[in-house]
Computed example of a mutant assay.
Amino acid sequence: MQNFVAIHGVNKEYPASNGEKHIILKDIYLEIQQGDFISLIGHSGCGKSTLLNIIAGMEKASSGYVEVDGTRVKKPGAERMMVFQNYSLLPWLSAWDNVALAVDKVLSHKPKVERDRIVSTHLEMVGLKDAARKKPGQLSGGMKQRVALARALAIKPKLLLLDEPFGALDALTRKSLQAELMQICNQAHITTIMVTHDVDEALLLSDRVVMLTNGPAAHIGQIVDIPFGRSRVPSEIIDHPLYHELRHELLNFLHHQQQVQYQEVEKIPSLKSVA
């Protein structure tokens, strides 16, 4: 079976102030099948969001490349939609108009009545039918993120990219949106890559969890397969014996990376007081 997303030896580096190169990512290879939900985890600064931006086409790899559905990624495209933690909504437009702006741009070949139906359907899908005419300032954080999800999904992307989409939300809202996202991705068979710091979120939503080592020169340290079926009930997953084994495995990896980081700091006398 052909891989839907293929990351071929991606490296990312930036020039440092001393004239040398600061390596963010090194030798990233990853293959993703259509319909998979992949989570990227790792400590802050390991390049998770950078990798997501490269897949989105918003940043260029220093070397290596990414293919989506057999086409090399060279720039941003509507087939790869990103949802950010900060919602990225236009504050002077209503929820309806924020979604319609994307739909009218990407699906301009469709009749107006069809575009309106798409907007309406996706706002209803995320539970915002009655808030369609409200502006972002009138919406809660969870509702804003629902608008961002509706906007991303409305144009039928091949790949959904999520950069800590629920990180700024309270626990109850986050759990509600996680359940909605899981249901939507299952129904639409959307291929999804999500950056998260939340181990439980990764276990709940993912088919595989890809763990990155510390930067600089972060690489894939381990990939964990999540064996649960796609129609997951959080309470049942948490009670599953494998859940705690997998959770321990993820936390153990992150703890090891943290210990490595401390050891590196201890080698630098000028940084001991900072650590």
Rank of each mutant, 00 (worst) to 15 (best):
A131N: 03
L128E: 03
L160R: 09
L139F: 01
V113S: 15
P157S: 06
H109D: 13
L128Q: 03
M143G: 00
S108P: 04
G141W: 06
S176Q: 13
D130P: 04
V147N: 04
L162F: 05
L177T: 08
Q138H: 11
V119P: 02
G141I: 06
G167N: 15
A179D: 11
A152D: 01
D130S: 13
R151T: 01
R115N: 04
D116P: 00
E180F: 12
V126F: 12
E180K: 12
A154F: 09
L177Q: 14
R174A: 14
L107A: 06
R117K: 12
L172S: 08
L161M: 08
R117Y: 01
A154V: 04
A171H: 11
A152S: 13
P136A: 07
V113D: 15
H109A: 15
E180I: 13
R133Q: 15
R151W: 03
A154T: 06
V106A: 09
L160D: 05
D170A: 03
Q178N: 13
S140N: 09
L149D: 10
R117S: 04
I118N: 00
V147L: 00
A150T: 04
L123K: 03
R174S: 10
K112L: 08
K112H: 09
T173K: 09
I155M: 02
T173Q: 11
V119Y: 03
A179E: 13
K129E: 07
R133M: 13
H109K: 11
L177R: 15
K135Q: 12
K158G: 14
A131Y: 14
P111S: 07
V119C: 02
K156V: 14
G167Q: 15
R115P: 01
P136M: 05
K110Q: 01
K144H: 10
Q138V: 07
